[in-house]
Design a protein around this nucleic acid. Sequence first.
RNA 1: GGACCUGUGGUGCAGUUUGGAGUGCACGCCGCCCUGUCAAGGCGGAGGUCGCGGGUUCAAAUCCCGUCAGGUCCGCCA
Length: 576
Amino acid sequence: MRDRLCGTLRLDDAGTRVRVCGWVAKRREHGEHLAFVDLRDHSGVLQCVVPGTVDVRSEYVIAVEGEIRPRLEGTENTDLPTGAVELTDCTVTVLNAAEPPPFAVDDRVEVDEVIRLRHRFVDLRRPRMQANLRTRATINSALRSSMDRQGFVEVETPLLWAPTPEGAREFVVPSRLHHGKSYVLPQSPQLAKQLLMVAGVDRYYQIARCLRDEDLRADRQFEFSQLDVEASFVTQEDILAFVAEAVLDAAEAVTGVRPDEVPRMTWAEAIDRYGSDKPDIRFGMELIDLTSVFSGTGFRAFDAPCVKAIVVPEGASTTRSRLDALTDRSKALGAKGLAWFRVIDGGEGAIALESPVVKFLSEDEQAGVLASTGASLGDLVLVVADEYRLTCSVLGSLRLDIGGRPVSEGPYAYLWVIDFPMFDGADDAGNPIAAHHPFTMPHLDDLELLETDPAAVRSQAYDLVLNGWELGSGSVRVHRADIQSRIFAALGIDEDEAASRFGFLLGAFRYGAPPHAGFAVGIDRLAAIFAGEDSIREVIAFPKTQSGWDPMTDAPKALADGALADLGLRPLPALD
RNA sequence: GGACCUGUGGUGCAGUUUGGAGUGCACGCCGCCCUGUCAAGGCGGAGGUCGCGGGUUCAAAUCCCGUCAGGUCCGCCA
């Protein structure tokens, strides 16, 4: 039907007769003797010259036959890769007429996202979206070939799985054959891939769809894809090497540049310096500790377990309303408040602090702030005083609010965050909560702390971070029953509960579980960053809105009459 | 569950602060003209429950209350 793609034609092709197919991007008529048709396919746009008039409209699907010739002198279009040539003496065949599109198929127009999603088949026709889909495909392909090369075998795991009440909320699939019982869609293939290790698969990977019934964000959809990895007889170091190899292969495939080694930082350092377990290390504004400056302070607001600051370069001119907004933001994040200090000229070549609260600080404290922060004239110093973790997280958020850049903006700053804590926080009963999941191997140096000081136990868990987004996480798994029992004990899970929740896994482990470890990389996030997008929706063909609505299909929808009964379900009376 | 921002012809906006006729801009659409344009150009035309409901007022796109939808964020995401 066609013999060339529109966007591929060049001067070298001059003199050849070709037939191309695509959509009418633009028609320009010049009376009864001449018309131009810009023909678009996924590869680009080609100008077709029609002798006479042509009865086509935007987005008509047409085939055009003609001869490629160099453009007339002075009519070349340098904005177009095909701009040195044009298809001349064209015969146009209309393959399908089209109504005017609801919005222009053009990267230059901004369109409301609901309208784009309702007509996604038109939206995806836009060059930028075509490029995004292809960037994602390039990543998938590079990841697969990298894992293949590294000796991993791709295994598919079930989408219909058993409920495991732990972690993310699961999508439920009621059973028709077993009324009252349900499958769930997997929030990840975590347990399946560990079983594959017991099964002797040795090195597994899968580009796996994961489903989580949790609230959506710019970087979160109900369903997303992971490069899921698990390997036996390996250490944390091996996993970091496997995953870095695959991700850097993908980066090279997309950008043409292979990044350097991925630097590492411990979780504790990330929290301390950046107030985040996924620090964006593309810029500074690191957290500065002022606790010792204010030990024994007379200023009650700073009489706290931890006092930290960030310095906003050139921030002294920040308006009062903006500072008030930052204070509100700090409170919304859980801080009691926010203290700000403008660094002003103190006379005689010195600098000084200016703030409504500066009068509550001693001379030594003011000097200590300036010395510790290294702030200079014209800067703004923001101070939070509270419990350690809260102080860090609030300042970490403010750092991003003030200095943050779009995630997709270069340079690409990869980071391994290692040595995550084993437990983080406590549940209503006062038991620790597993920071990663309960099959995570503790740091061997910290094993004895499981019973004495669980909060201090580090785990062999690790995250990969890119430009402040968590690209993925993984861990070394527990394969020994004795250590697993001690972890369950620390979590307050007794034998019966463990058996009912994870019985099939623990049972399998009795039949020869090898030491194993794994990881999962978020492909949507990786694709978004490489595509230059700040939302993963731009690299998903048919995404949903923040409330989980699909404007194209109108899902979710009420089921047809009888469908619920087939599943043994009956709706509850409406609440109002 | 919560905070903030947004909602005006097919698309993108201005108009809202300080109430006064659906007023305007750009693109698109329809018709006519045009032999080298390329987001072509010229002339003419059509197209609107100002998200929805209620209230205040002589009068509401504009002020107030509620509600729906979208986005960003907090919670949530082992």
